[in-house]
Structure formats: structure tokens, C-alpha cells
């Protein structure tokens, strides 16, 4: 049997609570991270991704405590991102019970960090998260899918595909690719963006942004080389369970784990 396609609920955490917004704004409370993590782990999630979006000075301490609480509650892989800017930051998160760290803005601003993390912890522990947005060529944009940093607020001029390839060369073990245009819209994944990036690299790609029903997951795996699908609101608001999504995939010959 081949490697299973992974279904990954994402916990966006603000001040120790899970939140969910549309297109990175309008945040609504969606529950306690440790409780939700445990719930998804029991429900058949293949992994948990936890992105801290807290901006306060107390952030590091809160994050460290929440990571430990989530790790206590789950026995599946656990990726944490949101405030890791150095090897020391990553070490603290891993020692608290995360398996992988995800870096986004810090990687764009300091690409050498990818290599440093990879050398110290191994490639398997290093996820590079890319937030990409379709550009309007009429505005003079030079690339089709542009990388944005600082939570989708600041454009970089970098092409998402080129940046993914560079991240792989620098030591990334996985790419977490979010479509800013599709995030929170429930209209399905950005298949074109996902395929462009997944074809360009030889490391696993997690697609993110836009999942609204089980058919969206099926279309993602049928028409792109994505290895995993990340989703938040579809699961947080119990529109569909992870099991329902997996059953739909299984019926349509996509390998999944039960």
C-alpha cells in the first residue's frame, strides 16, 4: 500500500485560544487548543499543525505552555509555527513536545535559518510555510503567485515556486503552502498554485486554504501531487468530521489511514 494522504487540522492560536478568520482577518474564537488537539487526534487526524499568531511580548511563555499541553493530549505528529526565529526558539518548542517547527517570515528574512535548523535538528523537523497570493499582472507584478510575509500583509516580490525550490535546497523537509486568496473561503484549494509548487520540489507539500467539503480534498489529491491537506474551519465548526472526509477519499481510491 502507498503512503497515505494526510488530513491535518490546523489550530491558529491567539493568546492561548484557537481562532479562525477569513482571509487572515475577522478572527472568531474556536476553542481550547489542547482540547481540540486531543479531539482531532482521537478522531483520526494524521497530524496537528499549530500556528501561533499572538503578537504580545508574553507570546513565548504562552506558546511554550500551550505546546506542552497539546503534546500531552495527542499521540500523532505535531508541527508548531508562529514565532520561531532562531535555533534556540526551535529547540524550546521541540523540547516541549513538538515534532517539527514551521518557519515563514523568518525564513524569507533569513534563509540561512532553514539550513541552521536542518543541520541541528535534521531535515525531518523543518517545515517552511509559504503564504502565496495570485497577483494582478495589470499592477505590474512580475510573478504569478507571490510570497507574502507577516501574516499575509506584506508582499515580497518572491515567486512561490522559486522560493519553495530554494527552501528545499537550503534544507527544508516539507512545504506548508497556503493560498491567501482561498483561505477561509470554503471554495476549495487553489489547485493551480498547489500543483505548480508540488511539481517543482521533491519534498512533501501540504496544501492549505479553502477546504469547505470532502469533495475539495478529493479534487486536491486527484489533480495535484500534494501529500497532505490542511484545513481549519471545516473541522472546528463540525461541518464535516475528519472521518467523513477520509471515507469520501477512501471510496474514491485515495489511500488514507483509518
Amino acid at each position: 500500500m502507498p503512503l497515505a494522504k494526510r488530513i491535518i487540522p490546523c489550530l491558529d492560536v491567539l493568546n492561548g485560544r484557537v481562532v479562525k478568520g477569513v482571509k487572515f482577518v475577522n478572527l472568531k474564537d474556536a476553542g481550547d487548543p489542547a482540547e481540540l488537539g486531543g479531539f482531532y487526534s482521537d478522531e483520526g487526524a494524521d497530524e496537528i499543525v499549530f500556528l501561533d499568531i499572538t503578537a504580545s511580548v508574553e507570546k513565548r511563555k504562552i506558546l511554550s505552555e500551550v505546546v506542552r499541553k497539546v503534546a500531552m493530549n495527542i499521540d500523532i505528529p505535531f508541527t508548531v509555527g508562529g514565532s520561531i526565529k532562531s535555533v534556540g526558539d526551535a529547540e524550546e518548542i521541540l523540547l516541549r513536545g513538538a515534532d517539527k517547527v514551521s518557519i515563514n517570515t523568518a525564513a524569507v528574512e533569513n534563509p540561512g535559518l532553514i539550513t541552521e535548523l536542518s543541520d541541528v535538528f535534521g531535515r525531518n523537523c523543518v517545515v517552511v510555510a509559504i503564504d502565496a497570493k495570485r497577483t494582478l499582472q495589470s499592477n505590474g507584478a512580475k510573478v504569478k503567485f507571490e510570497v507574502y510575509i507577516y501574516g499575509g500583509r506584506i508582499p515580497t516580490g518572491l515567486d512561490a515556486t522559486e522560493w519553495a525550490k530554494m527552501a528545499e535546497d537550503l534544507g527544508a523537509g516539507e512545504i506548508l503552502l497556503t493560498s491567501i486568496d482561498y483561505d477561509g473561503t470554503n471554495k476549495g484549494y487553489d489547485l493551480e498554485l498547489t500543483e505548480a509548487v508540488a511539481k517543482a520540489v521533491n519534498i512533501p507539500v501540504i496544501a492549505s486554504g479553502g477546504a469547505g467539503n470532502p469533495g475539495h480534498f478529493l479534487r486536491l489529491f486527484k489533480s495535484t501531487k500534494a501529500d497532505a491537506a490542511l484545513a481549519a474551519s471545516i473541522f472546528h465548526y463540525r461541518k464535516y468530521s475528519i472521518k467523513e472526509v477520509k471515507e469520501h477519499l477512501y471510496k474514491n481510491d485515495i489511500p488514507v489511514r483509518f
Binding site: 494524521d46 516539507e174 519534498i203 512533501p204 497532505a228
Partner: peptide, 13 residues
């Protein structure tokens, strides 16, 4: 082998 994505990451049997 190099014809598969590395690392081998995820759930396998």
C-alpha cells in the same frame, strides 16, 4: 531511492 519524495514523511503500512 531518489525517485520518491524525501524525506519519507507520513503514515505508511
Amino acid at each position: 531511492p531518489s525517485h520518491v519524495k524525501l524525506p519519507h514523511m507520513g503514515w505508511n503500512t
